Computed example of a mutant assay.
Amino acid sequence: MRLLTLTSSTTDPRERGRQIGGAHPDAVRRSAELYRAHFAALGIDLDRADEIARRSHDLLRGWHAPLAEESDAMADAAGVDRLLVAAVGARTEILAAAEPQREGECSTAVHVPATGAAETIQTWDWHAALVPFGLLLDYAPAAGRRAKLFTEFGTAAKIGANSAGLGLHFNILSHRQDSAAGGVPVHAIARRIIDEADSVDDAIALASSAAVSASTVFTVTERGDDRRAPRAASIEVSPAGVAVVAPAGDGWLLHTNHFLDEGLAAGDTMPADSTTAERYAHLAAVRSGMTGLDPLERAAAMCGGDGHDAAVCMRPELDKPSHEQWETLLTIGIDADSLHLDVHPGTPADAARHGMTRF
């Protein structure tokens, strides 16, 4: 995956969309083409995919119109059908029409100390063939406010932070109440949290306000000040409801791709042969060694003694078709205090060896 960057100073979502689509039209177009082929490879009828995308985009417009307008403007500037870009934005909602995938996406570890900034790291695991390009966006959600995020071209956001000191990580989940009904895209919820939330409570309120058809978890961190300590929470969202998971007593909050809330976990549909439990156990085993480190040291510590063979370093099974090959495409940490993302397009072992870029 090649990381492309864009800095935007406009607060107009339509203009921002035009800037993204105009600066990187090939990336927008390729993302739309690849996802359409991916849906077909998974056995999802393309007319059905279009209908889910249309319903989800309409629900997004009703929930928060500026993000729908940004998507449409991006499509127009790139010369791509608006619905095809909306389908990438609603890719999680469309994928709910297929059988649950054997794997999920991502391993996240967040530490909230008694004082000072949260220490975070995440892997993003997905199909390399779907994402030749990723986007790092530095932008102005509103006057006097800045934000930075990583995402795929066409999805509103995945991982990011804002100038209020809030950071957000993103992991996919699956629940038996997920459906092909269409819902507010979970990537758009992530984006609105990055754009607007000043606190964990703000993030919970925003996530709870959206009608969803697919499940995910937003792990958010909040900057402390003289009156309050730093905070973090994992906000698990599904059609069955919203649950909030707090850090453990040592300040660590870990998440992979299964529900941690007891009530929502009863409906979890992540397949038994997924590595989600193995990756979670690995994070639990190495977490005590990840505190008080710089980003490169934290990436190495995330692997622990297993190094390149760590469970969180996902390698593709090359004997399988591309839509069944899972790979760690990105390692990313958030420094919300200084509003920076530390990124490497590869595994944490690769990041520790080759370095990370500060964006």
Results as ranks from 00 to 15, higher is better:
222 E>L: 04
106 C>H: 02
42 L>S: 01
66 P>Q: 13
120 T>D: 01
124 W>P: 00
117 A>Q: 00
68 A>K: 02
56 S>I: 01
201 D>F: 07
43 G>R: 05
129 A>K: 13
186 V>W: 08
198 D>E: 07
222 E>G: 02
79 G>S: 05
216 T>A: 09
180 A>M: 07
279 R>K: 15
3 L>I: 15
91 R>M: 14
40 A>E: 10
285 A>F: 09
157 A>W: 13
311 A>P: 09
96 A>K: 06
185 P>N: 15
102 R>N: 13
236 E>L: 12
25 P>S: 06
310 A>V: 10
115 T>P: 04
253 L>S: 01
199 S>A: 10
232 A>L: 02
217 V>R: 00
197 A>C: 14
302 M>W: 07
282 H>F: 08
184 V>R: 10
259 F>N: 05
154 G>P: 15
12 D>L: 08
151 T>N: 08
72 D>G: 14
35 Y>P: 01
110 V>D: 00
94 I>S: 02
100 P>L: 07
84 L>M: 11
280 Y>I: 04
253 L>Y: 06
274 S>T: 09
73 A>F: 10
154 G>A: 09
16 R>C: 11
341 L>D: 03
207 A>N: 04
125 D>V: 08
133 F>Y: 15
247 P>S: 07
297 E>R: 11
27 A>C: 10
84 L>Y: 00
118 A>M: 01
173 L>I: 05
303 C>A: 09
304 G>W: 04
74 M>D: 09
169 H>I: 02
254 L>D: 01
336 A>D: 00
284 A>E: 14
142 A>H: 01
5 T>P: 13
128 A>V: 14
223 R>A: 05
354 H>V: 06
320 K>N: 15
209 S>W: 04
166 L>P: 05
306 D>C: 13
21 G>L: 10
359 F>R: 05
170 F>G: 05
25 P>R: 02
246 A>H: 11
298 R>N: 08
215 S>R: 02
207 A>Q: 11
325 Q>Y: 13
285 A>P: 11
302 M>Q: 02
134 G>Y: 10
347 T>M: 05
66 P>L: 06
44 I>F: 08
5 T>V: 05
251 G>W: 04
204 I>T: 08
83 L>H: 12
174 S>V: 05
286 V>F: 03
232 A>R: 08
271 P>D: 06
147 A>D: 08
196 E>D: 14
208 S>C: 10
149 L>G: 04
85 V>R: 07
77 A>N: 04
12 D>F: 03
345 P>I: 03
259 F>E: 01
338 S>W: 01
23 A>D: 12
93 E>N: 13
